[in-house]
Write a protein that binds this DNA or RNA. Structure first.
Ligand code: FES
Ligand code: FES
Lengths: 143, 143
DNA sequence: CCAATAAAGGACAAAATTGTCCGAATAATA
DNA sequence: TATTATTCGGACAATTTTGTCCTTTATTGG
């Protein structure tokens, strides 16, 4: 469904949000340990998220990543996916036509449309705060 | 959503079905022209579909690919996807956990579940015949 | 049997994605 | 100011996916 980069990005963001709620910054190392991802690769993804202002980074001792507390319930899965993979997940044709359009639809267009639409709605309406609750309760896992 | 292999596979199958309805066999070449796909790569995919008994192939002059007429409304998108990409689209975790389970779900599990389920239902309930009708009417396109 | 046609399949190549390494930049602190 | 901790970013490497080439095998018709 998503690229590996996107998967790591979502998990990393969730972990950062989790710690940010407790006013803690997190280092790259602690993130990769928490989500079980390759360190340098995860660093690249975090850079992208930082450039997109989804997470905030600071260098030097005591530095690391963090998310503004009041943004935790504003950031959606969709924001993260778009920052990393772009919006092709919404806009591209399921059968790989150059573009997905009503004018020249592929044979499965009408079948894919509602699925892509419900995916969009789900990703856009799911924010980090909501997902973190179950992590806090120990009901869901990051690795 | 799907791999390129899968996309070509679905389009190729649709084109073969389209011609099989008129009792025509189709050659690899005519398929790749119709769906605008790389020839040798498409050949591999068709081999897979043939081994999975979704299409039937015959060598030699006048040979080519075909689908049993009475199977056109039995073959679903799901059959094709599973033959080519396997069932990971249904079974894998959206966040890349080793397995998607209720016991150790990822934080987005409950969000992804209905989407994957509706995808499954759509793919399993969509057969080739249905998709071909709009092709025949010139309403949808294979390239 | 021979020639022509078409798929099968193995080996290889290119491209994209995933992942690693290492030095530079930055910030805290002693 | 020197040291240390940390992210940034460029170059590179490994892996996976996509795509190509070429030989073999099967089938048909003359
Ligand atoms: S054209 Fe293929 S999904 Fe819209
Ligand atoms: S565990 Fe992640 S989707 Fe089910």
């Amino acid at each position: 469904m998503f690229s590996k980069a996107c998967e790591y990005g979502i998990k990393a963001t969730l972990f950062i949000a989790h710690r940010s709620e407790k006013n803690q910054r997190v280092s790259l190392k602690s993130i990769t340990e928490a989500i079980n991802s390759p360190e340098a690769f995860t660093a690249k993804i975090l850079q992208k998220l930082a450039r997109n202002k989804i997470v905030h980074s600071s260098k030097g001792p005591g530095g690391g990543f963090r998310i503004e507390k009041d943004e935790i319930d504003q950031i959606t899965l969709s924001d993260i996916v778009i920052a990393i993979d772009g919006d092709q997940i919404y806009t591209s044709c399921g059968l790989g036509m150059e573009e997905c359009s009503e004018e020249a639809p592929c044979p499965a267009h009408e079948k894919f449309k509602p699925i892509k639409e419900s995916l969009r709605i789900t990703l856009e309406s799911t924010n980090l705060k909501e997902l973190m609750e179950d992590i806090n309760k120990g009901l869901t896992f990051l690795k």
